[in-house]
Nucleic acid binder design. Sequence first.
DNA 1: CTCCGCCTACCAA
DNA 2: TTGGTAGGCGGAG
Length: 167
Amino acid sequence: MNTSLIELPIATADGNFLARYSEKGLAGLDFPKNGRASSRPVATKQIPLQTLRWHRTATEALKAILAGREPKALPPLDWAGTTEFQQAVWRTMLAIPLGKTKSYGEVAKAIGNPKAVRAVGGACGANPVPVLVPCHRILAANKKIGGFSGGLDWKRDLLTREGIVCE
DNA sequence: CTCCGCCTACCAA
DNA sequence: TTGGTAGGCGGAG
């Protein structure tokens, strides 16, 4: 069983993101690292054509969102190893259009488990593909910013780019 | 089973 | 308003 992931950088005006692909699709996305450690180089020729296609799609999607535009398409996402609950939360987030938000409570209600509010927060924090799976569009009750594992600065920044104003 | 967390509603100042 | 807190739930160990 091949579980090795291919890591490819996505250069943006905001830094170098790092995308990870499995044979099933995009499995992870990291915000630019603080250190200037460039990712390990990968010879283009040994990367499956399919992966390159996904990478092109992911790159366009990421740049679109960073520019405040709804992405045309997303690459397939590989959520292997994650739970049904988490996937339900992430699917709900994917349904939130750019520029709109939902509270943790609303998401909990949406997945049919209104009391699992805090658990929803946990799923957001476990989101392996931030930005593309818009966990930043989930705010706390009363439009408070809430938390963000990728750093609150990023959350505020992303929301601002989408024209969202919160508390 | 225990502990913790991107939450909330509620209650006391 | 602000601050502290108990309740509830999924995930990790």
